[in-house]
Amino acid sequence: MGACVSSTSSSKSAKTVGGGGSSVFKRSSAAAKVVHVEGRVQEFRQSVQAKNIVAQNPGHFLCSSESMSIGTCVPHVPDEEELQPGQIYFLLPLSQSDKPLSLPDLCSLAIKASAGLDTRSVDLSSTNSKLILR
């Protein structure tokens, strides 16, 4: 795997994960959802900035499912950006930030998101408290 120089580059062969009407990761409610690498999902119903999530998870970065494309580096959500209701985000290790997203990587993320979005495994979170439903 090669290192990425720019996460904004595009290629005709790159397949877009999100955007438009046919996203692999469907929006399912008014809460912003963050899928962690182990499959746990946090749900944020109140406004929260990306930097607040990243600060609680050192060595990780936040990315939006809408901006993921196969064959390109996954762009980081800017620190000051507010997480958008209904949007699915992934919290990934910084070690993955300079590697192009492969189809197996995408499949793994889709499986984790699908399993984690089961309501029995969702953390309902605000910036102050957490409630874990099981």
Rank of each mutant, 00 (worst) to 15 (best):
E81V: 12
L83G: 02
S6M: 08
S69W: 10
S125H: 07
S64C: 13
L94A: 14
K112L: 15
Q46P: 04
S126W: 03
S9C: 09
L124R: 09
S114R: 15
K130I: 00
C107G: 07
S64M: 11
K99M: 10
S9D: 11
L109Y: 01
G86W: 02
A50R: 05
L94P: 07
E43W: 09
P75D: 04
V77Y: 13
L101D: 05
T119L: 05
S10P: 08
N57D: 01
L103H: 13
K15V: 15
S97V: 04
C63L: 08
K15E: 09
S13K: 01
R134A: 05
L83C: 06
V74E: 04
A115I: 10
T16D: 10
I132Y: 13
S129D: 11
A30W: 11
L83P: 00
C4V: 01
Q84R: 11
L62G: 15
K12E: 06
T127L: 11
V34F: 03
T119M: 11
R134H: 03
S129Q: 02
L83A: 08
S11Q: 13
R40V: 02
S97G: 06
Q96W: 03
P58F: 09
A115E: 14
D105F: 12
S11R: 14
S65A: 11
N52A: 13
P78E: 15
K51Q: 14
C63V: 15
V77W: 12
I70L: 07
A55P: 00
T119Q: 02
V35H: 09
K99C: 03
Q42V: 00
Q46Y: 10
E38Q: 00
I111D: 12
D118I: 00
C107S: 05
N52V: 01
E82Y: 00
K12N: 07
K112F: 07
S129W: 01
S9W: 09
P85E: 09
L62Y: 15
Q96C: 02
L133N: 07
N128E: 15
K33F: 01
F90H: 02
G21S: 11
S11N: 14
C4A: 02
T72V: 06
S102W: 05
L101H: 08
S29Y: 08
G19Q: 09
C63S: 15
V122E: 12
G20S: 06
A30Q: 12
I88L: 11
T16C: 06
I70V: 15
I88W: 02
H36L: 08
P78S: 14
D118W: 09
G39W: 12
K51I: 02
S69P: 03
V37Q: 14
A3W: 01
S29A: 13
V24P: 05
L109S: 01
S22H: 10
F44N: 00
P93L: 00
P85Q: 03
L94Q: 15
